[in-house]
Design a protein around this nucleic acid. Structure first.
Lengths: 196, 196
DNA sequence: AGCATTGCCTACCAAGTGGTAGAAAGTAGA
DNA sequence: TCTACTTTCTACCACTTGGTAGGCAATGCT
């Protein structure tokens, strides 16, 4: 694999797990078996490296979501498939969601850029939700708030691995499936209208 | 106010907003108008300071929650009052929840200690939920997972201020009330059994 | 062969990190 | 007033931080 890609991946993991400030270029280089200066050759500053990881993470997430969209029917099915897709991502590459959370804590300017990249997705989601509400397939409510609620629920469920471990909750694949199931029930009862 | 308390508060804010690694004792001291060595007099190490802030944050949160418990009826009312109470805390002292989230990212040993302090609360909550489920006042489900889901929902809704701001969502008190309302609807539809 | 480019390196550096040693200044009781 | 104690300070230290300057080997083009 290209060195620049190896750096990108290792940085994503490190930033996502230990935070931006908690990650030094030296430790990153040590882990990769190279010198810090090689990192600075591919990414001129630490912040540039951060930006690259964030852009990549957003791209991967956006791809996963749009994949779920194309392979799903309208209504609840689409939401379920999107949640499943995000959970799969959270299992395969937990660092991606961890990084995005870290970005939201870092604030501007990184967050500003990230949000700009992400905005079309949010806009698309709210527009779709609106039309679904008009069709009566989703409970009537503020679509913007709904997207944000869903974001925090999924993000929380997907990234609190550390916390769960400390509490002593098992983290086997089966348990993750259970949590996802519980979350889906949660969302479904809140979003799908009760049949009259 | 006592210097040690001023330090504690400033540290809670700083750790919660900029993270543990993103906060230096020097910057903290500068903000307080004292020297770094004065901080180290009251709290022998940076980690000791962190532990103190976490212990304090947990105490405040636990107090708020137990207050909500004593002033509420069983069933949905209790959950609603607890959510309202936590939201009030998130508005008055957002740094407290920010700090707790930071702790869950830092992992051991800080997280281990924090969880130990928090465990009785979780145990109490799950026990109560179980009895409520038995009574049919709350929808039957895994109480442990339920507590965790609620935790991440509330935490997310209460601490994503940065993100909302970047997206351009208004943050007036009225908007916060709206978000809380939406969250409560969310929880209610998921937790309260449909009357037959 | 000559030459430019790429990629990684060694050698440094100024600034900032958490922390120690110990002096100075206030404070209260005898 | 003397003394003991608490609190804050100056001075300093070893170490780590992100970043610069420039060398050196490999690669490919003419």
């Amino acid at each position: 694999m290209k060195t620049s890609d190896r750096i990108l991946i290792a940085a994503t993991v490190a930033f996502g797990e230990n935070g931006y400030d908690g990650t030094s270029l030296d430790s990153l280089a040590l882990e990769l078996g190279i010198r810090k200066q090689s990192i600075l050759y591919h990414y001129p500053t630490k912040e540039a490296l951060l930006d690259a990881t964030v852009a990549d993470a957003i791209e991967v997430l956006a791809l996963a979501l749009s994949d779920a969209v194309t392979k799903s029917e309208d209504g609840w099915d689409r939401i379920e498939k999107m949640v499943r897709r995000v959970f799969r991502l959270a299992i395969q590459r937990p660092e991606l969601l961890g990084l995005l959370r870290e970005v939201s804590r870092l604030g501007p300017p990184t967050l500003t850029k990230a949000v700009k990249d992400f905005d079309p997705l949010i806009k698309g989601a709210t527009k779709w939700l609106k039309s679904e509400m008009a069709n009566g397939k989703i409970v009537e409510s503020d679509p913007y708030l709904l997207v944000l609620s869903m974001y925090s629920v999924i993000m929380g469920a997907a990234t609190e691995g550390n916390l769960l471990e400390a509490i002593g909750v098992q983290q086997t694949p089966r348990d993750v499936v259970l949590r996802r199931k519980e979350l889906l029930r949660f969302l479904k009862s809140a979003l799908v209208p009760v049949p009259k």
